[in-house]
């Protein structure tokens, strides 16, 4: 089978994110960027399926500025076979990404598309679902276990209060949750070799997609500063405050 893995380039999870002074977004100039950690889990799962002999080819795709190539190369160093970059300087919204993925899926005809459940920058949690809807494919979101069977795939999903197991007909979309696997470090010799792997570049127009934003960001603000706590004399006062002031019980 062929697996398509979309990956997103985001601000590194170790970076303390700062809001731009004009409130239009977050500072990304001179900020360390890396692969969205949930997408890393997706790459790992795809590579493991290839190592198990279940998949024959793992194609890694990314969309955005030309530096996304670096993110694709990282995935190729982890074991992806080839990459595709849809290059654009435009800000991309989940629907535009889903539409471009549709274009790529029609070109590549993968049996499975596996991607992070959300990206750690905007936490939208929409791309996988929108893409599945556009394709009319089944979706197994928030996967903590993936089991490929003959012509179908069984996905264990993390849901409120437990786990749910769904069976999907292939081709299908899987979005990954944290517990699915622990991604490997790319081996250093493989990082050197990743440069030689095929990486094609397309434009949104090649896929017939108009990426003009449909949403308008009104304001981006820092979370409110945490207020100092208070001391209570006894349990009765605590319960009283929780009930009448905080109104949480």
């Amino acid at each position: 089978m062929k697996i398509l893995v979309p990956v997103k380039r985001v601000v590194d999870y170790n970076v303390k994110v700062r809001v731009k002074a004009d409130g239009s977004g977050v500072e990304t100039a001179n900020v360390k960027m890396s692969m969205n950690p949930f997408d890393e889990i997706a790459v790992e799962e795809a590579v493991r399926l290839k190592e198990k002999g279940v998949a024959e080819e793992v194609v890694v795709v990314s969309m955005g500025v030309s530096q996304c190539q670096e993110t694709i190369r990282t995935a190729l160093a982890m074991g992806g076979d080839r990459g595709i970059l849809v290059e654009t300087d435009d800000e991309l919204e989940p629907l535009a990404v889903a539409k471009m993925l549709k274009g790529l899926a029609e070109k590549e005809s993968p049996d499975m598309v596996i991607l992070g459940k959300q990206a750690i920058d905007d936490d939208a949690n929409q791309t996988g679902q929108m893409f599945a809807a556009l394709m009319g494919w089944g979706q197994g979101t928030f996967a903590s276990e993936v089991d490929i069977q003959d012509g179908s795939i069984q996905v264990t999903r993390e849901i409120d209060g437990g786990a749910e197991t769904v069976k999907l007909k292939l081709p299908a979309v899987v979005t990954t949750d944290l517990r699915l696997n622990e991604p490997r470090y790319a081996k250093l010799p493989n990082i050197m070799k990743a440069k030689k792997k095929q990486l094609d570049t397309l434009s949104p127009a090649d896929l017939g997609v108009d990426t003009t934003p449909r949403l308008k960001t009104v304001k981006v603000a820092e979370p409110p500063k945490r207020q100092g706590g208070i001391k209570v004399a006894d349990v009765a006062e605590l319960v009283d405050k929780l009930k009448n002031e905080a109104k949480v019980i």
């Binding site: 170790n14 190539q69 190369r73 990282t74 160093a77 250093l188 990082i191 050197m192 440069k195």
Partner: peptide, 17 residues
Amino acid sequence: DQETLNTLLDTISRFVR
């Protein structure tokens, strides 16, 4: 190759950390 080196250094720095 700057791009390859960036990936290499990122990987090592992450492994160290």
